[in-house]
Structure formats: C-alpha cells, structure tokens
Amino acid sequence: MESALHRRDEMAILQPTLRVGDKVRFVSPASTPDRERVFLARDVLESWGLRVDFGENAFRKFSYLAGTDDERLADLNAALRDPAVRAIVATRGGKGSYRIADRLDFEAARNDPKLLIGFSDITILHLSLWKSCRVIGIHGALYADDEEGRIPEETRSSLQRVLMTSDDVVISSREDEPTSALTTEGTASGRLIGGNLDMIATAAGWALPDLSGAILLIEAVEMHLGQVDRELTMLRKGGHLAGVRGIAVGQFTKFNPGGGITIIDLLRDHLGQLDVPILGGLPLGHGKNPLSVPIGSMAVLDTAARTLIVKR
C-alpha cells in the first residue's frame, strides 16, 4: 500500500535559495541564547551578503525560556508573516519549542514559505511544519563546537551551501564518529525526516508526521541511556517507526556507558529490529564540525558509499 508520505509528495513546498540582500531574522523559540554567540553568527550571515534583524524577544529571559510562550510564539509567527523575511534562524535550542509547536501560523508558512534553520529542540518545529504544511527546513546552525564560541569553517560553508545554492547536499559518514559502527548494508530512498531524538519522541501522537516511506534522521546529546531506551521503545512499539525505509544516524554526544552498555549497543539493539539500512557516523548534531542538511527533501542513503545525498 502506498504510504501517506508518498501520496502527498507533490505537496512538498520548496523554498528558493537565498540571494545577496535577502533578510534573515533571528528568533528564540526555545531557551535564551548567549548574546555574543548570536552576534558571531550574525556576522557570518552578513559576510555572505544577507541582511539580519532580530525578533523583539530574541534575548528575553523567563526562567529557562526566552520569554513566555506567547512572546516566543509572537516572534516566530511575525517572521512567518513578514514578506521581507526570507529565512528564520533559531538562536539556539535548549527547551521550550515543543510548548508552541502546535500554535504556529501554518497558513502563513504555506502561503509564503521560508526556511527555518535550527536543530536540537527546534526539531519539533520542523516536524510540525512538515506535518501541517509540507514545508522543508534546515537541520543545522552556525553551531560553535567549543567553549570559546568559535564556529568551524566546515560548519559555516555547509550552511552557506544549503542556503545559497541549489546543489544536492552530500553528507559523508565519518569513521571517527562513534555511530559509524552502526552502519549496515543496503540503500534506501525517501524524504529525510527527523532530527533530535528527544523531540521526535516528544512529538509522537501530535506533531510527528507519518514516517512511512521516510529516511529517519536521529541525533542526540547528553541523555541518560535509560531515556534513550524508553524513547526508542515507545516509538517502535507505538508503531511510529512502521514503514521507515532507512535510518541516518548523526552524532550521539556526551553519553556515558551504563553497566557496561554503551549508547552504540543500545542503538544497535533498537534500530536492528527495524530491518532497514542504517548509515551511522553522519556529522549532524551536537558534535565536532556539524553540518547542515535539508529536512523534508528527498534523499538517498547508500551504506556502501557511506553517503547520504539530499536532492534539491
């Protein structure tokens, strides 16, 4: 039976690439960002010829959130509705996007699609936008992978290519990434859906789209093994992973072994039961030199070539 994902492929909304002079807006749908790190990211975008502005509440602080739900939502919806804004950059992840993911202005996103750039907690916004509008987003960021806030050149150039060219995106597995050990045999094609595992599990039952026919991307950071175990168990036994055609495994960082079991052991136990091709070692997530990739686009996962190719 043809999957719901493939029946609705013709409805996927492709945004044009950004051009010099286009306006990009920073908003904070989750936690409060470090101002200086955001300004470093702004400088990079401006060096590409883009114009940058900020949501009214981009640096607000309300407990662990960047403002109240209404304040964070207002900034995001204002950006979705503003015809001058051609891309939206989440200042950071953290916590809180899941509180507003069902209240986005989906009609505005449909009528004037623009790229939402972010990962981690922002994954739930990508999932919700795909489920409701079939809008393609960008899993990635100008992510500083050290304490000094330096953005690696590889990370910069990856996002620039995704935003400002229409070239296919080729992500190669890195042998030095621990999840590369999960790679099996086979090829798969389908729309690349997913991102942060914690947000995929949080979205189940309300913001998670049908994954049948998809290549599922997963990555995570600093979670307890038991939490990963519970989330993957729920996703599998709840039927949310039924029909997935392949698994693209990104960076699983800051995991300590528990009782002799590693995060790789745990992932192998769960993902192996899906009996689909798995490609690990992808530099997508919270690790060293992370790259950017479109979410919602058609992709080909090739374990022999150890590549994930996302079509534009």
Results as ranks from 00 to 15, higher is better:
154 E>A: 13
200 I>L: 11
257 P>R: 06
226 G>M: 11
28 S>T: 09
175 E>T: 09
177 E>Y: 11
76 L>N: 00
187 T>D: 09
83 P>L: 15
102 D>V: 04
105 D>L: 10
57 N>C: 02
281 G>A: 07
82 D>Y: 11
310 V>A: 06
75 D>L: 03
298 M>K: 15
90 A>W: 01
254 K>A: 13
307 T>A: 08
69 D>A: 07
35 R>S: 09
295 I>K: 07
93 G>R: 01
80 L>T: 07
290 P>D: 09
118 G>L: 06
208 L>W: 06
245 R>I: 05
51 R>L: 12
222 E>S: 08
228 V>Y: 03
251 Q>R: 02
208 L>C: 04
81 R>N: 11
78 A>R: 13
71 E>V: 02
252 F>Q: 01
112 D>A: 14
237 K>H: 13
25 R>S: 07
228 V>R: 02
33 P>S: 12
22 D>L: 09
51 R>K: 14
152 P>H: 11
108 A>M: 10
280 G>S: 06
38 V>K: 12
189 S>D: 12
298 M>F: 15
306 R>E: 15
96 G>H: 00
83 P>D: 11
269 D>G: 11
7 R>E: 14
52 V>G: 02
17 T>L: 14
89 V>I: 12
284 L>M: 06
294 P>A: 13
197 L>A: 03
66 A>E: 00
110 R>Q: 10
27 V>P: 00
53 D>I: 06
71 E>S: 02
308 L>R: 05
73 L>R: 03
